[in-house]
């Protein structure tokens, strides 16, 4: 059961954050992982200050050209939680959360623009120097994982 006054908190500890014009690149020192937060995810994350409710965050989504829909906020929080970028785990029922494809259909977004607008995080593990040096030809570099896409 969701707490309707959920006030998520963005993690700050042990992170290096680089602000780009519309995105954020985050390095997690604890996990040696790297993330690229797209525009809408960056927007939601910045509003996770422990004071702002998810309803208030949702009401501001038109500032990033998205409808004021609570499921978009939940989708963003789900991807942020998966990337370990929130303090604590947001308490909402993921079972009721639509998939990305369902959300695109529900919101009436064109498929191409949805990919750019809906919350998404691209993640990768930071390589060690040895990983790059080994040159094992059977090892393929991992493609960045994209959170927020359909399972």
């Amino acid at each position: 059961m969701e707490n309707s006054s959920l006030r998520p908190v963005a993690r700050q500890a042990n992170l290096t954050i680089e602000e780009l014009p519309t995105e954020l690149v985050v390095y997690d020192h604890l996990r040696n992982s790297m993330h690229c937060l797209n525009r809408s995810t960056s927007f939601v994350w910045r509003l996770c200050d422990g004071q702002t409710t998810i309803e208030q965050i949702g009401a501001r989504l038109p500032e990033v050209d998205l409808p004021a829909h609570l499921d978009i906020v939940r989708q963003a929080l789900k991807t942020l939680d998966k990337a370990h970028l929130l303090v604590g785990k947001p308490q909402f029922a993921e079972s009721g959360l639509p998939t990305r494809r369902q959300l695109v259909h529900r919101l009436g977004l064109a498929a191409g623009s949805a990919a750019a607008l809906l919350p998404a995080i691209a993640s990768a593990t930071a390589p060690t120097p040895t990983m790059a040096k080994s040159g094992d030809k059977d090892k393929k570099p991992k493609k960045p994982k994209k959170n927020g896409q359909d399972d």
Binding site: E18, L20, T22, E23, L24, V25, Y27, M34, H35, C36, L37, N38, A122, A124, A126, P127, P141, P144
Partner: peptide, 9 residues
């Protein structure tokens, strides 16, 4: 951002 991530990898 995606390009930066690709370079960081």
């Amino acid at each position: 951002g995606q390009a930066t991530l690709e370079l960081l990898r």
